[in-house]
Lab assay of single mutants.
Amino acid sequence: MDVFMKGLSKAKEGVVAAAEKTKQGVAEAAGKTKEGVLYVGSKTKEGVVHGVATVAEKTKEQVTNVGGAVVTGVTAVAQKTVEGAGSIAAATGFVKKDQLGKNEEGAPQEGILEDMPVDPDNEAYEMPSEEGYQDYEPEA
């Protein structure tokens, strides 16, 4: 019985440690998101679009440190934060509304985080759909 109880105690310690790591990862992701939003706020009209992409990228980098179902929630929060940063930029006159959601080359930025393969159960990952990809044929 002692062996059984000791095993359960060790398992509990492992769960607590994993929860603490997840909590730490979420806190880091939130900190990076805040950094990115402050970065966007300090940019001029020309830099705002690039700044919004930076927020998304920093958040995406930190999301990889967070495991399990938390990833889905962090990704949703990050996307809403990026959308909010863009709205703030438009409201303050840093950028025109028609410039939001495009990178410096004018290509749409939507789907940055949505296409990231995420499995809350950590069982399997699927690649994003290939609808947006084109076949590449090298020139002879």
Results as ranks from 00 to 15, higher is better:
65 N>E: 10
22 T>L: 05
125 Y>W: 04
87 S>H: 10
31 G>V: 03
49 V>S: 13
73 G>I: 09
132 G>D: 05
13 E>P: 00
101 G>L: 09
134 Q>V: 03
96 K>G: 13
35 E>M: 11
30 A>F: 10
44 T>R: 02
17 A>E: 12
10 K>I: 14
92 T>S: 13
126 E>Y: 02
108 P>L: 06
58 K>T: 13
103 N>E: 10
91 A>E: 05
88 I>C: 04
76 A>M: 05
34 K>A: 07
42 S>E: 12
134 Q>N: 13
82 V>M: 11
130 E>F: 10
23 K>A: 04
67 G>S: 06
41 G>T: 08
112 I>L: 05
53 A>D: 04
40 V>I: 13
130 E>R: 04
98 D>I: 02
126 E>L: 05
122 N>D: 09
132 G>I: 13
127 M>N: 10
130 E>T: 10
101 G>H: 04
42 S>M: 05
108 P>W: 08
131 E>K: 04
135 D>L: 12
41 G>H: 14
88 I>K: 05
117 P>Y: 11
138 P>T: 07
48 V>G: 01
45 K>Q: 03
78 A>L: 11
90 A>P: 09
12 K>P: 00
21 K>L: 13
92 T>W: 11
35 E>T: 12
92 T>R: 07
22 T>C: 14
86 G>T: 05
3 V>F: 02
82 V>P: 02
54 T>H: 13
57 E>H: 14
109 Q>V: 15
122 N>W: 05
127 M>K: 12
117 P>C: 12
41 G>D: 00
7 G>S: 09
34 K>M: 02
134 Q>R: 13
113 L>C: 04
131 E>Y: 13
85 A>T: 11
107 A>Y: 04
89 A>Q: 08
11 A>M: 14
87 S>A: 10
103 N>D: 10
110 E>V: 05
131 E>C: 09
113 L>A: 13
102 K>V: 10
27 A>N: 10
35 E>L: 14
137 E>G: 06
25 G>Y: 08
129 S>C: 09
118 V>D: 04
7 G>A: 02
34 K>T: 02
106 G>W: 07
96 K>E: 11
83 E>V: 10
128 P>L: 11
26 V>T: 01
114 E>Y: 06
120 P>S: 10
42 S>I: 13
52 V>C: 09
108 P>R: 11
99 Q>N: 15
39 Y>C: 06
85 A>Y: 09
32 K>I: 13
38 L>R: 09
99 Q>W: 06
12 K>Q: 08
123 E>V: 15
63 V>F: 04
93 G>H: 06
93 G>Q: 05
3 V>K: 01
33 T>K: 01
62 Q>T: 05
3 V>T: 00
101 G>N: 01
17 A>Q: 07
97 K>R: 11
87 S>G: 08
56 A>P: 01
45 K>I: 09
10 K>F: 13
139 E>I: 09
129 S>N: 03
137 E>Q: 05
104 E>P: 07
50 H>Q: 11
110 E>T: 11
2 D>W: 01
90 A>G: 02
104 E>L: 07
108 P>N: 06
94 F>M: 06
38 L>I: 02
127 M>F: 11
132 G>R: 15
119 D>M: 08
1 M>T: 00
129 S>I: 06
55 V>M: 15
86 G>D: 05
84 G>F: 14
53 A>M: 03
66 V>I: 14
110 E>G: 02
20 E>R: 06
50 H>T: 02
24 Q>N: 05
9 S>L: 12
24 Q>R: 13
50 H>Y: 15
98 D>Q: 10
115 D>H: 12
115 D>K: 08
83 E>Q: 07
100 L>G: 14
1 M>K: 00
89 A>C: 05
51 G>F: 11
100 L>M: 06
110 E>W: 03
89 A>D: 04
95 V>R: 07
112 I>C: 05
107 A>C: 04
132 G>M: 13
89 A>G: 10
79 Q>G: 03
79 Q>W: 05
110 E>R: 09
9 S>G: 10
63 V>G: 02
140 A>Y: 13
82 V>R: 07
28 E>T: 09
55 V>G: 01
44 T>M: 14
52 V>S: 02
64 T>H: 11
126 E>K: 08
69 A>W: 14
48 V>S: 01
7 G>R: 15
140 A>L: 10
121 D>W: 04
15 V>S: 00
77 V>A: 10
97 K>W: 15
46 E>T: 15
42 S>F: 09
131 E>T: 13
64 T>A: 07
46 E>Y: 10
129 S>P: 12
7 G>F: 13
89 A>H: 08
16 V>G: 04
43 K>Q: 03
26 V>M: 09
82 V>F: 07
18 A>E: 00
121 D>R: 03
88 I>M: 08
55 V>K: 05
32 K>Q: 08
46 E>H: 04
20 E>H: 09
27 A>C: 09
130 E>S: 07
14 G>K: 05
68 G>W: 12
78 A>W: 13
2 D>P: 01
36 G>P: 01
16 V>T: 08
139 E>P: 03
121 D>N: 03
105 E>I: 01
136 Y>D: 01
106 G>T: 08
68 G>Q: 02
119 D>G: 08
102 K>S: 00
88 I>V: 04
100 L>E: 13
140 A>K: 13
7 G>M: 10
47 G>E: 05
135 D>Q: 09
68 G>D: 12
100 L>R: 04
54 T>G: 13
94 F>D: 05
69 A>K: 06
39 Y>D: 01
68 G>K: 09
38 L>H: 06
41 G>R: 07
86 G>P: 07
57 E>D: 12
30 A>K: 02
39 Y>Q: 07
132 G>L: 11
9 S>V: 12
70 V>F: 06
94 F>W: 15
27 A>Y: 11
97 K>A: 15
136 Y>K: 14
92 T>M: 03
95 V>S: 06
100 L>D: 07
48 V>N: 00
105 E>P: 03
